[in-house]
Computed example of a mutant assay.
Amino acid sequence: MRTSTRRQSPAPADLVTYRFNNQMMYVPPAENFDQAVTFARSAFEGDLTGIDKSRISFSLNVLANGKQSSVGISRVAWSTTMSHLAQYEIIDVHVQPELRVPGSPEPPPSYRSCGSPKDSEKEQHSSSHSSSLIHRLVPTRLFQRLSP
């Protein structure tokens, strides 16, 4: 008599572990990428306060071809990835560097600390000739993202 074993997917994890700057915190698995950012900011509020959410990313360490590698988790793959995680699996939290255009002036302090765009309008209008050079060198969409 033949018995069939049906492969069941693992039960979803109740907790996962976020690791940032060699600190680890248990958090519930986030349903989506934005919620993951919120959980990371809450778990590491001293380190992630004031960091723009677009600079926060996540990765998992996996064993592939006998080597350990870090694999980023994209926004669109978040929920699928979470459905396959083991209990207490470690998700690394990263802060991406600020994108800088060589030769560009330092962003105003209000931009670095996630201030509102209106806070730095005056500084933007008083910027030097290099600002107009940047406008010509950088695609408009990218510059709008960089501009406060």
Score class of each variant (00 low, 15 high):
Met1Arg: 01
Arg2Trp: 10
Thr3Ala: 11
Thr3Met: 06
Thr3Tyr: 04
Thr3Gln: 04
Thr5Leu: 05
Thr5Cys: 04
Thr5Glu: 13
Thr5Arg: 06
Thr5Tyr: 03
Arg7Gln: 03
Gln8Pro: 02
Ser9Val: 10
Pro10His: 15
Ala11Pro: 02
Ala11Ile: 10
Ala11Phe: 08
Pro12Gly: 14
Pro12Trp: 06
Asp14Ile: 15
Asp14Cys: 15
Leu15Gln: 09
Thr17Pro: 00
Tyr18Thr: 06
Tyr18Asn: 03
Tyr18Ile: 07
Tyr18Ser: 02
Tyr18Glu: 02
Phe20Gly: 10
Phe20Trp: 07
Asn21Thr: 09
Asn21Trp: 07
Asn22Ile: 13
Met25Trp: 09
Met25His: 12
Pro28Met: 12
Pro28Asp: 08
Pro28Val: 07
Ala30Asn: 11
Ala30Val: 05
Phe33Arg: 03
Ala36Arg: 00
Ala36Val: 00
Ala36Thr: 01
Val37Ile: 15
Val37Gly: 11
Val37Thr: 12
Thr38Asn: 03
Thr38Arg: 07
Phe39Tyr: 15
Phe39Ala: 14
Ala40Cys: 03
Arg41His: 15
Ser42Val: 03
Ala43Ser: 11
Ala43Gln: 03
Phe44Glu: 09
Phe44Thr: 07
Phe44Pro: 09
Gly46Asn: 05
Asp47Gln: 14
Leu48Gly: 12
Leu48Gln: 07
Thr49Gln: 05
Asp52Gly: 09
Asp52Cys: 14
Lys53Ala: 15
Ser54Phe: 03
Arg55Asn: 06
Ser57Cys: 06
Ser57Leu: 05
Ser59Glu: 09
Ser59Ala: 00
Ser59Val: 01
Leu60Arg: 02
Asn61Ala: 09
Asn61Tyr: 00
Val62Met: 08
Val62Asn: 08
Val62Ala: 12
Val62Leu: 10
Leu63Ala: 06
Ala64Phe: 03
Lys67Leu: 03
Lys67Gln: 07
Lys67Val: 01
Gln68Gly: 14
Ser69Cys: 10
Ser70Phe: 02
Gly72Asp: 05
Gly72Ser: 11
Ile73Cys: 10
Ala77Arg: 10
Trp78Met: 08
Thr80Pro: 00
Thr80Lys: 08
Met82Thr: 04
Met82Tyr: 02
His84Asp: 12
Leu85Pro: 04
Ala86Ser: 06
Ala86Thr: 04
Gln87Trp: 06
Gln87Met: 12
Tyr88Asn: 10
Glu89Lys: 02
Ile90Asn: 06
Ile90Ala: 11
Asp92Tyr: 06
Asp92Gly: 07
Val93Tyr: 03
His94Ile: 00
His94Gly: 10
Val95Ala: 11
Pro97Leu: 09
Pro102Ile: 01
Gly103Phe: 00
Gly103Gln: 09
Glu106Ala: 04
Pro107Lys: 13
Pro107Gln: 10
Pro109His: 02
Ser110Thr: 09
Ser110His: 01
Ser110Arg: 02
Ser110Lys: 01
Ser110Glu: 05
Tyr111Thr: 13
Gly115Val: 02
Gly115Gln: 02
Pro117His: 15
Pro117Tyr: 11
Pro117Lys: 13
Pro117Val: 12
Asp119Glu: 04
Asp119Gly: 00
Asp119His: 00
Glu121Asp: 07
Glu123Ile: 08
Glu123Asn: 05
Gln124Glu: 04
His125Cys: 07
His125Lys: 09
His129Pro: 02
Ser130Asn: 14
Ser130His: 08
Ser132Glu: 10
Ser132Trp: 04
Leu133Gly: 12
Leu133Lys: 14
Leu133Ala: 15
His135Gln: 13
Val138Pro: 09
Pro139Ala: 15
Leu142Pro: 03
Phe143Leu: 01
